[in-house]
Structure formats: structure tokens, C-alpha cells
Design a protein around this nucleic acid. Structure first.
Lengths: 219, 219
DNA sequence: ATTCAATACACGCATTTGCGTAATTGCCAC
DNA sequence: GTGGCAATTACGCAAATGCGTGTATTGAAT
């Protein structure tokens, strides 16, 4: 974070985009911006990954999603695998939910539409370096919505705190005896509590309980 | 979304904030903004929820996180439960990871620091109505980072397809005998495969295997 | 041709589990 | 002050599990 303050050198930027004119537009834009140093432009992930084996890693990469061959999603994943410090901003014509989700999961730090103004694209480079995650408002909302939908509603089966504690130990793979030792309780007590857990969760085995606990995150 | 274009009436805004002076600041700010109609200010979630039972629901709510009694997180949850259409923007002095996460999961559409400029706060109201998710750059990044960490990289332990098939049955809570019947195999064969699963996953019990399978979603 | 991994089946045994049944203690509410 | 409830300890037993050890077939890799 705040990389620009700790380094004097200009920030290096690579561009990965198969459309030649758009690629040149961006490149020119970066060249004209003080503090940024345009280094390479590629038309494919393959070329980019190749270059990564022999060049110093760039600080920022602007990457199209709809690339021929290795697409942008897989591209970010591979780039981040080689150079985790490189911040990748995805560029796309679509604002399709699934793509955004996958790009972010693959390690992208920002997600912009190609229709954004050039000013916005340049300012997003600053933003990402300052620890931000440039994305347009609608995309930000989708991310937030996905997050809240993804967050399981934590089903409550009326487990007591003791039972939750033991359930956690089950998830950790402990046997009744081990749990008893850990909690300074008798083997029989643990056995008893597990019966309570089983009946409340409506399962008949530890694996069933563990599965239910993790699937509906009850801990 | 895009509510302002479909409705002529000014957008109603409620403010929930225990600090009296900050509350009045915001209220005044809203009053002075054309197109927004300040309706109520409350110092607690309890009062707010009470009012929701008798008043028409507001379009937007600005809510402090650090409230006495019912806190902001629980507050959003309850407000959204009563009025899902109301867009809630959280206000906070802290930018603590866990809080952001919980607020978003509870249904907040935006997350701003109290240190933001008043201009920013007003513009965020427009932003949220336009389908955005106003949050400062650092917070956006944290959300994105949480997302990517949350997306399990589907660890591969070199399980064979047969082993994955059996692992799935374990997650479903079947016993060795049941799995054997289901797959038309001998009990012993299942036993054998489970040993393979255990050694590859480095666990020593079915619950351990189930936990690992679900935590790192291996299926 | 031979090694290797995956698949399949088998015996034995110590340990663990799931469950029926039962009793005691502490605490909170009515 | 008593009834209810969570938490605790307890015995016994059939069933299931985890694991050491062994054999055999198949297809892919070397």
C-alpha cells in the first residue's frame, strides 16, 4: 500500500489488450501521465506471461477480460501466481455478474468498463496504488450484493454454547476422549452433549454433524 | 435501482446517530440538498425500529455503527428485514475489517467513514440511489480482498475420481456399508479407498475428511 | 517387459461411536 | 421454594470405524 510514497521510481505499467487501437490509446495515456512509466503492451496473456519470466514485474497491469487464447480471468490468476505484488485492473465491455465475481476471485484489484472516461482510467491507477479498488458504482454494488447473499444466514438450531463449543471440536477432528480432555470434562459428558447436538441437527453421526455445521455455518 | 427517475417525490432520508451534533450536521446537510427530504433523526435503533412500524419506509437511511443498545450491524439487519427496499449507508469512525464484513452481510449498501467530507456524504446518497455502493477506496479494497480470500482455491490433494465420489458420500453422511451398497462395491473396497482419502488429506477420521472437504471445497 | 497407480476384495483387532438408561448439581424464573 | 433446564457424570453394549497386513486385476507409463 501507498507504494508511491516509499518508492521514488516511476510506477511501471503493462497493458494487455487485443484491440490494437484501444491498446495504443491506453499506452499513450499512460505515457503522458507523470509518475507512471509505460513499459509494455501485449495482445495476449501468453505474451505477457512469457515476458514475466525475463522482465522485472510491473507495479500495475491493465488487462482486458475478453482475450483470445488464455482469457483475462485465467490471465490474472497466472500473473498473480507469478507476481502477487502486481496490481491488476480488469477492463471489460461487459458488466456481467459472473465475470466480475470470477475476476475478483482470481485476484483482480479493480474492475472497470471500457466505456469509462480516460481520466477515470488514469485516476484508477492512482486509486489502486493508494490501496483502493477502482470499480464503477454498479459493479461495487454487485460485489456487495454478492457478498451479502453469499453470507449464509447462520441457521440456528437452538444449540447451547456448550454444544457449539463441542461441535467446533468435532469440526476440528477431535474424538470424544480428546474433547473431554480439552474441556476438562468426562467422556460421558461429551457423549451426552453430542446426543443433544445430533438430535437438534437431526443427524446420526459426527460426520453428519460436521457437514451440517460447515454447510450452514453454525459455529 | 435508478429510483429517482421513476419517482417524482423527493427521496426520504432518515438519520440514526447517537452523537447529537453530528446528527444535526447531517440532518442540516440533507435539508439543504434539493431532491432529498430529511424526515427523521434518531439516536438509537430502538427508536428507529419503533418509527418503522407506523411511518412509511424511508428511501435511504444513514446509520452509525457504534450505537448504544442495538448496534448498527444488528440495526441494518432489522431495518432490512422490515423494509428491504430501504438503502442503508453505514457511518463509522473505524475502518475495521470485521465490522465492514458484518455490516455488508447484514445488508448495508454503503460504508463511509465519518471523516469523509460532507460533500462526499451527500454525493454518496446519490450514488447509492444510482445503484452504487459508496465506500472509500480502502474499504472497497478490503471487500475485494475478503472476497478473493473467501473464494477457496479448491486445493487438489490428488484424489482419484473414485475417491472424490466416496468423499462426497462421506459428506452426505453415509456409512461405509451404505456407500458400498450405493456403488455396488464391497465394504472392504470402500474401506480401502477411505484409507487413500485419509492419507492424501492427512486426516484420521471421517469427520476430519468431511471438514477438510467442505472447508477447502474439494468436491 | 515391467513398473506403477488405481481398483477391487479380504481378515482381524483394538478403539471409537451411537444410543438406551439413569442420576446429580447449579441456576433462573415464576 | 420449586419446577424447569442446562450441564455434568455414569454403565453397558451392539455397531461402526481405523488400521495393519495380504492378494489380485487392469491399464497406463517407462
Amino acid at each position: 500500500m501507498m507504494r508511491q510514497s516509499s518508492e521514488k521510481e516511476p510506477l511501471t505499467v503493462w497493458v494487455v489488450e487485443d484491440n490494437a487501437s484501444f491498446r495504443e490509446n491506453i499506452a499513450e495515456l499512460v505515457r503522458q501521465t507523470p509518475g507512471l512509466q509505460f513499459e509494455h503492451a501485449f495482445s495476449s496473456c501468453e505474451d505477457t506471461l512469457e515476458e514475466l519470466t525475463s522482465s522485472p514485474f510491473p507495479d500495475i497491469m491493465l488487462m482486458d477480460i475478453g482475450l483470445p487464447g488464455i482469457n483475462g480471468i485465467e490471465g490474472v490468476r497466472r500473473v498473480k501466481a507469478i507476481s502477487p505484488e502486481t496490481l491488476v485492473i480488469m477492463l471489460t465491455v461487459f458488466d456481467e455478474n459472473d465475470m466480475i465475481f470470477r475476476a475478483i476471485c482470481a485476484g483482480a484489484s479493480g474492475y472497470l468498463l471500457k466505456s469509462e472516461s480516460t481520466d477515470r482510467i488514469i485516476s484508477s491507477l492512482q486509486e489502486v496504488l493508494n490501496g483502493g479498488a477502482p470499480m464503477n458504482a454498479q459493479i461495487a454494488r454487485k460485489v456487495v450484493d454478492m457478498f451479502s447473499h453469499l453470507a449464509a444466514p447462520r441457521g440456528d438450531y437452538g444449540l447451547t454454547s456448550r454444544e457449539r463449543e463441542i461441535l467446533q471440536s468435532l469440526v476440528d477432528g477431535l474424538s470424544k476422549k480428546q474433547i473431554a480432555d480439552k474441556l476438562f470434562l468426562s467422556f460421558h459428558t461429551i457423549d451426552m452433549h453430542m446426543r443433544g447436538i445430533y438430535s437438534k441437527l437431526q443427524v446420526h453421526s459426527r460426520s453428519g454433524a460436521v457437514a451440517k455445521a460447515l454447510k450452514e455455518n453454525l459455529l
